[in-house]
């Protein structure tokens, strides 16, 4: 989405602007132990779009924590749902379909669920810089609330001119999972 104005830079900004923001920030931990960061993001994405745009950052968190707490049954029960195990940031040891230097196209993963592929990169061609790491697929983690098997994630470089026109002289890198890449 475009058309936003100047960046709202605040000098000496406080960590939290209002007392409730810090409490929301910390209460995320109460629901996060039994779900995934992807399901938290996916839940935020369920906000009606006009409400999403009109809400502050921590209002969106609050909205999602209210729903995740309801989903986990912890608003009216002392029972704690099963904990999720956080994935390892270790370097992957296996080879993938793509290698450094390969040209790749970003797929257009239209879904009613969750994806981490930004719209401005879809269908565009970039160059694999490196195999960055391995991580469970965010769409699956969002749907199930647990982390599955890791897939390779590639750092892909794009010429901004290909995305935004010839006036753009910079490059953009993004980290894209293997299932969201194809040969160009």
């Amino acid at each position: 989405m475009h058309g936003f104005g100047p960046v709202p830079i605040e000098i000496d900004e406080p960590l939290f602007h209002e007392r409730w923001e810090g409490r929301v920030w910390r209460m995320l931990a109460a629901v996060m132990g039994s779900t995934t960061i992807d399901r938290f993001r996916y839940t935020i994405e369920q906000m009606p779009p006009a409400e999403y745009l009109a809400s502050s950052y921590y209002e969106r968190w609050l909205w999602a924590i209210e729903r995740l707490a309801g989903e986990q049954g912890i608003l009216d029960s002392a029972d704690r749902p099963a904990p999720t195990a956080w994935p390892s940031p270790a370097t992957p040891t296996w080879a993938g379909r793509f290698h450094g230097g390969d040209r790749v196209r970003v797929r257009n993963p239209v879904t009613n669920g969750h994806t981490r592929v930004p719209r401005y990169l879809r269908r565009h061609v970039g160059r694999v810089e490196l195999v960055a790491f391995a991580w469970p697929n965010p769409g699956e983690s969002a749907a199930t609330g647990t982390y599955g098997e890791p897939e390779l994630v590639y750092t892909v470089v794009f010429a901004a001119a290909d995305l935004f026109g010839p006036a753009a002289d910079h490059t953009i890198t993004a980290d894209v999972g293997e299932c969201d890449l194809e040969e160009p």
């Binding site: 960061i37 981490r116 592929v117 930004p118 002289d169 910079h170 993004a174 980290d175």
Partner: peptide, 12 residues
């Protein structure tokens, strides 16, 4: 100077 913008689109 080449400007490189890095979009944190995954868990890295």
């Amino acid at each position: 100077v080449e400007l490189r913008v890095h979009d944190s689109t995954a868990e890295q």
